[in-house]
Nucleic acid binder design. Structure first.
Length: 433
RNA sequence: UCCGGAGUAGCUCAAUGGGUAGAGCGGGUGGCUGUUAACCACUAGGCUGGGGGUUCGAGUCCCUCCUCCGGAGCCA
């Protein structure tokens, strides 16, 4: 069913010669005495509206001196093809209806600092650039769901209030749950592992919370994570799913977000190079790459952002790193049967220095081994009783991963900071607006 | 928590070796019939982040606190 309530700026090219009414906000205004120009934006784009003295009632013409940036107006006029207008079309105004005159809009047409813009995030999202980024975000979400939905995955969302830490290591936000301690979820994975035993392939997609006091452009305290989980799936197949998902996202964005990526001046040649199969490198070989590049890196450590960049630059494209030292990975990761020191984990590193987008791996499916790992990590056996149950009643090899949505948006859009990839970012020093 | 950097008009930034705080944008007033972050003229707007110190004199030098930005660690 299609509901058409009114005309949008994006549709003007199909309305040449017709009289339409646009509903939007004043983006800019230029006056030249007996003629003035109103740049209107409506969320789908912006267009120039021309107001000519003598061709409209005086009270409409006099709005030149009244309208301010971001005032809300409905503009009626005939659509005209016009080379002089940005976008190629303009509206010959016959009437303007004012909804409200905006007062002292704080964001001007000139440059602003990020601190000021973040304080005015509720207004900043109206800008063309933020509109483009957030549109790409919405399309990437569609791409993720489209890929999984059309590949037999069932979307089952997992709780945000949880009683326990999933990995024990990272800091969690604590809340009061009717007198009991509760934590905000940092992953839905453990619940996904229960769900796959009913549905085979599932995914959850929602906000997750990390109370780490990270202070970098690559971290938010609240971010969205897509987490697929598959029964009867080993590490190799897991990597193929991750690869397929990334390719689908990139493809989708290149086709459906052309206009947005153009306006963000994203060089898409790098994105076009993202093709299957991705390079795969073991942790051990990656360490060798680091050492050969002159980094004093020792086997057993975790990669930092700089290390990831060196590794992905070495492959000039996307790369999946696999089989990490078990000591630096979570208790639920399956050990490599060929080398007990290793865990069957994998990270997907995006090119151009964007680093880790995906982290995941094959899960430990054996009851006794999992119990031993729990104890080694000094986690409470009681709290994980239900999780251990999954290994008692028809356990199977299974794998999954988590994709950081905001990091993916930043990479696709070519942004240097995650704060622009979500409407209202939450960071260590940013809880408002 | 550690290491850098920055706080001056509503916003973005200037201010030579301490010596009367300026510009652009935005606001206000006026002008202009095709403007493209339009332009031109005039105009209002300041406890230089807070506190203390040195000095005849501090935006500038010293101490201290606060806030923000970038990076490290941790991670998606």
């Amino acid at each position: 069913m299609v509901i058409v309530k009114h005309t949008y700026i994006a549709d003007l090219k199909h309305k040449v010669g017709e009289e339409v009414t646009l509903h939007g906000w004043v983006y800019n205004k230029r006056s030249s005495g007996k003629i003035w120009f109103l740049i209107l934006r409506d969320g789908t784009g912006s267009t120039q509206c021309v107001v000519v003295g003598g061709q409209v009632p005086d009270e409409v013409f006099d709005l030149d001196g009244v309208l301010t940036q971001e005032s809300s107006v409905s503009v009626t006029g005939v659509v005209k093809e016009e080379k002089r207008a940005v976008g190629g079309y303009e509206l010959e105004v016959s009437d303007i209806r004012v909804h409200q005159i905006a007062q002292n809009y704080p964001i001007s047409k000139k440059d602003h600092g990020t601190a000021f813009l973040m304080d005015n995030r509720h207004l900043w999202i109206r800008s063309k650039r933020q509109n483009a980024v957030l549109k790409v975000r919405a399309e990437i979400i569609r791409a993720c769901r489209d890929f999984l939905d059309s590949n037999g995955f069932v979307n089952l969302d997992t709780p945000i209030f949880t009683a326990n830490a999933c990995e024990g290591t990272t800091t969690l936000f604590e809340t009061d749950y009717f007198g009991q301690k509760a934590f905000l979820a940092q992953s839905g994975q453990l619940y996904n592992e229960a769900n796959i035993m009913s549905f085979g392939k599932v995914y959850c997609f929602g906000p997750t919370f990390r109370a780490e006091k990270s202070k970098t452009r690559r971290h938010l305290t609240e971010f969205w994570m897509l987490e697929p989980e598959m029964a009867y799936c080993d590490l190799d197949e897991n990597m193929e799913w991750a690869e397929g998902l990334i390719c689908h996202i990139v493809d989708w964005a290149l086709h459906r977000c052309k206009e947005q990526l153009d306006s963000l001046e994203r060089d898409t040649s790098q994105l076009r190079k993202v093709k299957k199969p991705f390079a795969r490198v073991s942790y051990t070989d990656a360490v060798e790459i680091l050492q050969n590049s002159g980094e004093g890196f020792e086997w057993g450590g975790d990669f930092g952002g700089g290390h990831e960049t060196i590794i992905s630059d070495h492959f000039d494209g996307p790369v999946i790193v696999h089989r990490f030292p078990a000591a630096i990975k979570a208790f639920y990761m399956k050990r490599d049967p060929e080398d007990e020191r290793l865990a069957l984990g994998m990270d997907f590193l995006a090119p151009e220095g964007y680093g880790e987008m995906i982290g995941g791996g094959e899960r430990e499916a054996d009851y006794d081994t999992l119990l031993r790992n729990l104890k080694q990590h000094k986690l409470s056996e009681d709290a994980f009783q239900w999780y251990l149950d999954l290994r008692k009643y028809g356990t199977v090899p299974h794998s999954g991963f988590g994709l950081g949505l905001e990091r993916t948006v930043a990479w696709i859009c070519g942004l240097s900071h995650l704060r622009e990839t979500i409407p209202f970012p939450r960071m260590i020093y940013r809880l408002e607006p």
